[in-house]
Design a protein around this nucleic acid. Structure first.
Length: 184
DNA sequence: CGGATTTGACCTGCGC
DNA sequence: GCGCAGGTCAAATCCG
């Protein structure tokens, strides 16, 4: 795994002194979600070129993560008989910072100490209204300089920070492309 | 004051 | 059935 895919592409939202290692590389597909960008495209957008994401058996997926399935249980979990699969990809990041700035906004909803690890695992959810992507962040106890970030799901919206950066530019382009006679 | 974070309680699955 | 571990909830707290 080490040494496998270590994109250090410049100019991407993730920054600081980080090295990236993507640990799962199996292609995946999503059966019935609305049109959303492929994980590879999102990774590319984040600056990780030439990467693919892995597939995970997500039989414990929560109801709000499966787009209103008929199999929603009264309690929070979906029946294990329904084999949901969502993309999951994992980065190992060499950084002093625990939080990888990936261009999306995250809200922390939990932290848990994990067996065989002296560092707690943090749980984050994307703050976008309709996006149910989650990520887990944990520092390796073997090598405390490495932070493992696991993404569950694919964003169904563009990076908000990226859009904030680009919106003045887009507005200017729109303004300039409008015929002068029709402005105002 | 509102949004984000913290943290203990709770829920669920799994192995024995 | 029981205990353990992982994941989530939600009230309390913090902070800009």
């Amino acid at each position: 795994m080490e040494g496998q895919g270590t994109p250090e592409t410049a100019g991407a939202p993730p920054r600081t002194d980080q090295h990236y290692i993507l640990t799962q590389t199996t292609p995946f597909q999503i059966p019935s979600f609305p049109p959303i960008p492929r994980a590879e495209d999102q990774l590319s957008e984040m600056g990780f070129s030439g990467l693919t994401a892995g597939m995970v058996d997500q039989s414990q997926m929560l109801e709000n993560s499966c787009g209103g399935s008929e199999n929603v249980c009264k309690n929070r979990r979906i029946s294990r008989s329904k084999k949901w699969r969502i993309p999951r990809f994992e980065f190992q990041t060499r950084s002093k910072e625990d939080i990888l700035d990936d261009g999306f906004r995250w809200r922390k909803y939990g932290q848990k100490s994990v067996k065989d690890s002296k560092f707690p695992r943090s749980y984050y959810r994307c703050t976008h209204l309709t996006c149910n992507v989650k990520k887990q962040v944990q520092r390796l106890s073997k090598d405390t300089t490495i932070v493992v970030t696991t993404y569950d799901g694919i964003h169904n919206h563009p990076s908000e920070i990226l859009m904030e950066t680009l919106s003045p530019l887009l507005q200017q382009i729109q303004f300039l492309s409008t015929p002068a006679s029709t402005r105002f």
